[in-house]
Amino acid sequence: MSRSLGVTTVLILTAVDRGVCYGLDIVNRTAMLPGTVYTTLRRLERRGLVRGQWEDAEVAEADRRPRRRYYELTPNGEQALVDAREHFAALGVDVAAKLSVVGAGE
């Protein structure tokens, strides 16, 4: 990756990495605003780092709720996340502290 990812992007990637999840999940995990989360997800999806998939109709039916769209990392996305972590480490920025916040709600 020639271009490094921003902190926002890395946070969202990390949140997705912690488990298959949907939009509102990520909002809750990262404590970011929904608008930021959505537009970042769209961008990541377009760059092929994240993949969105509709859940099975039967699952939703059984839970008596609308179908959700779940997001997961693609292999490219996993690589990008590793690179980004290295990049931040090299900069000496303590992303770990920020990242540790992610998932605190779980």
Partner: peptide, 10 residues
Amino acid sequence: AHFLCGAWLD
């Protein structure tokens, strides 16, 4: 409200 604004931004 945050969510609805988010959807619009999207």
